[in-house]
Design a protein around this nucleic acid. Structure first.
Lengths: 161, 161
DNA sequence: TACTTTTGATAGTCAAAGATGGTCAGAACA
DNA sequence: TGTTCTGACCATCTTTGACTATCAAAAGTA
């Protein structure tokens, strides 16, 4: 298993066990525990604990410094609203779109299958036509908004419908 | 026996033995095992493990990366083959796509909701970016193929997935 | 005391190296 | 003559290390 995955899991497990929406950790301690460079911890945070993933982080340097990881909890439908009104905007990368679809499923706003279906529509392979990447990002945003609007209209998907 | 055939057989045997609809493998390990160029593995995947053959593949690059091969259930595989080969082609108009989605729902292949979702992704409003209509028809076809492949992979619609 | 400097303990950034897999043109083969 | 196979080059993800920034407490100073 990848180191990054192990660290990610460790942190999430820690949050689960403490049943707290936030935890504090010492970067150097973590690095020592996993026998890796301290900056590895930053890498994990910046690739797996972003706002798109549903987390925000804070930190304090200097003596007694630490990193705080906070899980954002949104009520049913709020996340969807946030995506449509703020997050997606008029362009979005494939990677971000994938993360957001995954997050929607995790939150139960859509089923895992619907998430896969949505992502398969906007994945790079689907958009493999000769147009600038910039346009693809715009297309993706439009499609995603359109699909999410449909989801919002027709209820939280996944069901038999 | 041709190398490609040997690799194909090896992979299929591996899936049989594990009795799993999906397996993961390392491209470089495989290449080493068969003493061939790593790209040979891609060749085998792209000629023998396509959706038309009843398989889909995913992969992840970078450290700890791997290739995942997923077998689509037989029933779905045949249904899919029909759709991909007979109905969609490499370009499709918005109207034809809409009708297709509707028929799929009628036949119970996908839920009404899924049909709406799929159509909202490929509707003209979603593709409202400045590119030739011809490209849009190709895009639509790609997206539809991709979404149907995903549906097939996860079983015939409706369920919770 | 009150203010400044120093020091040690943290964390952040960024670029380079390492580890995978992907693509494509052309050679080799059957 | 189409299929198979290879190799050079590319893209992506992970890991590390050198250098930088910040902070709190201790030490120095007027």
């Amino acid at each position: 298993m990848r180191l990054s995955d192990a660290i990610e899991e460790f942190i999430k497990t820690m949050m689960m066990e403490q049943d707290e929406p936030e935890i504090e950790l010492k970067r150097n301690e973590m690095a020592e525990y996993f026998r890796c460079a301290p900056s590895q911890i930053n890498y994990v945070l910046s690739t797996r604990f972003t706002p798109d993933h549903g987390y925000v982080t804070e930190s304090k340097r200097g003596g007694g410094g630490c990193i705080r990881i906070i899980r954002i909890q949104r009520k049913n439908g709020e996340f969807l609203k946030y995506l449509l009104e703020e997050r997606i905007g008029d362009a979005i990368s494939p990677r971000a779109a994938q993360i957001l679809c995954g997050k929607l499923a995790e939150q139960g706003a859509i089923s895992q299958r619907t998430a896969q279906l949505m992502y398969s529509a906007i994945a790079p392979e689907s958009l493999a036509v000769p147009i600038p990447e910039m346009l693809k990002d715009k297309l993706r945003a439009r499609m995603l908004r359109s699909m999410l609007t449909t989801v919002a209209r027709h209820g939280p998907a996944g069901g038999e419908g």
